[in-house]
Design a protein around this nucleic acid. Structure first.
Lengths: 157, 157
DNA sequence: GACGTTACTGAGACTCAGTATCATCTGGAG
DNA sequence: CTCCAGATGATACTGAGTCTCAGTAACGTC
């Protein structure tokens, strides 16, 4: 939860893109988010802060960040799309379906599994995507507490 | 990999749903597809054969089949959704990005990887999705042949 | 076979994410 | 300061998927 430096902005500049007001604002908003968010969330954020940034620009910026691998687009179980800030290396995501936070996860033997599948099926696998959904420790703890104290079963969305 | 009997229809009936004309037609169309397909593909099919089935019904039927786990919805790398006919057990998909065919794949050690991730992150993982994309043997062979000549002795089907 | 219940249906309006177009603006190199 | 490609925002558009609702048909019962 450290207030991140403008790391996204540097990636953008390093890649030769212009540093514009719209982009800077969006990057700041995105960097402030711990959880995954949808394009609509981001748009709402923009409106709330009275920034005048067009919808198109929001999508363009997200696309840009996805290209730079600074943000990844993920497919939630419901079928919606969301974005998460992440490290620009190959990895996967573990998303807490209760609080929405996500964390990057490394290989953990997956590479071997994929290789094995490739061998057995005789496919040349050039892309794989693993997405995991569950509940993090904090959320489980919170749920347990609520149950015990008999707080009127408030489940969150 | 067998010339399917109306197995989908049986699932529908077994689950207590009605066997209607619209459903039967759709099921036949779906069972005739080896590759993954989008809702739009299916709709085009319907139109081509002059069947009068509403868009809503197409989506409703797909949803039904997804519920029955007879069909799975998958997220293609481009972000579109597609559906594939599949076994009603937990498994994953390996999709050939060249010919579009997909095949179900089993565990191959993935379960262990997921368990390991759960242990290390202290998440309670209740859903995971692995999708693999690549090129199947046949397509690789075909590509190689085309490169070498213009047409040669074809194996494959 | 006729009947009644109710699940299912098609048409079409609607929503909402994402894209395309285009006239205007602006960052930053020179 | 000048210049212009790259960026922007307004707006129209697209296309997937949903909702509604009046009408239809499947199927158990008599």
């Amino acid at each position: 939860m450290a207030p991140e430096p403008p790391v996204l902005q540097r990636s953008i500049e390093a890649a030769g893109y212009r540093s514009t007001t719209a982009r800077r604002s969006l990057l700041r908003l995105i960097e402030g988010r711990a959880e995954h968010f949808t394009a609509a969330d981001l748009e709402a954020d923009v409106r709330r802060r009275r920034l005048s940034i067009g919808r198109a620009t929001i999508f363009r910026t997200l696309e840009l960040l996805v290209d730079l691998r600074a943000v990844e687009r993920l497919d939630l179980p419901g079928g919606d799309h969301a974005y998460v800030l992440c490290e620009p290396s190959h990895h996967h995501h573990l998303v807490c379906s209760s609080c929405g936070r996500s964390r990057d996860i490394e290989d953990h033997g997956l590479r071997a599994v994929v290789a094995e599948i490739a061998r057995q099926t005789d496919f040349e696998i050039d892309e794989h995507r693993l997405e995991l959904f569950g509940r993090c420790r904090a959320c489980r703890a919170r749920a347990a507490t609520h149950e015990r104290t008999g707080a009127a079963a408030g489940d969150v969305a």
